[in-house]
Amino acid sequence: MREITSEEVTQAVENLCISSNCTLNEDVWKALREKLKNEESLVGKEVLEEILENDRMAEEEKLPLCQDTGFTTIFVEMGQEVRVTEGDFYEAINKGVGNGYRKGYLRKSVVKDPLRRKNTGDNTPAWVHIDIVPGNKLKISVMPKGAGSENMSTVKMLSPTEGVQGVKKFVLDWVKERGANACPPLVVGVGIGGTFEGVAKLAKKALLRPIGSKNPEPFYAEMEEELLKEINNLGLGPQGLGGSSTALAVHIETYPCHIASLPLAINLQCHAVRHATIIL
């Protein structure tokens, strides 16, 4: 059994909260620059230039790219030979979030109660997903998710016979209707299959994949490519003001499902695609 102290977890989460909010991964930079090169609309080009300039300034000054530093979503892959010592694991994570948001001057956007709405003051609690995996490593990914794009996400229980066409039509109609409010160019996370609650997690996890990566199954990789093309043909463009750069990527994740079900989830991600990972 490998031991990792809760303090190591706290420190890692603190660092990840700050780095994920203040820097973009290279795949995102590359995708945004590519869009600027190919955008047809003049307004769209200006919007993309402004986004790239903003992101450059943020990295240079170590400031959060966006004022909405999100609800902190954390994906953990815990090796089954790992034991966290000297304290509660969830407490360790939330302490890291609190420290990171305070020290990084990140906005505290979490209210303690959904209806009585008093701010918790330190952006806790995080929403933590834990998967147990073979091995003796602890992998932590922090994804600060802004509300603008999160509010434009959905779960739909389709009929099994609606099939590929039904899924594609629902995704396209949804992006056409709601995409403009989610700060395009977007990453479109799509979950297909599993259960009602499971499909939403698939869609969110799809957002962790690097832009340019493909679903390992050719059937779904092709569907990702077709959907991306069709979404960019919608004409929404950067910020929804018209143009050809509506999405940077479509990522599909799937899971087996019930004979009578076809769950579908869409989690939209704004152009500030923020996530950071560490392996302890």
Binding site: V47, N54, M57, A58, E61, C66
Partner: peptide, 13 residues
């Protein structure tokens, strides 16, 4: 007026 969503640092200047 639309301000560019996510251009938070640029706007703050």
């Amino acid at each position: 007026f639309v301000a560019v969503g996510g251009a938070a640092v640029l706007i703050s200047k």
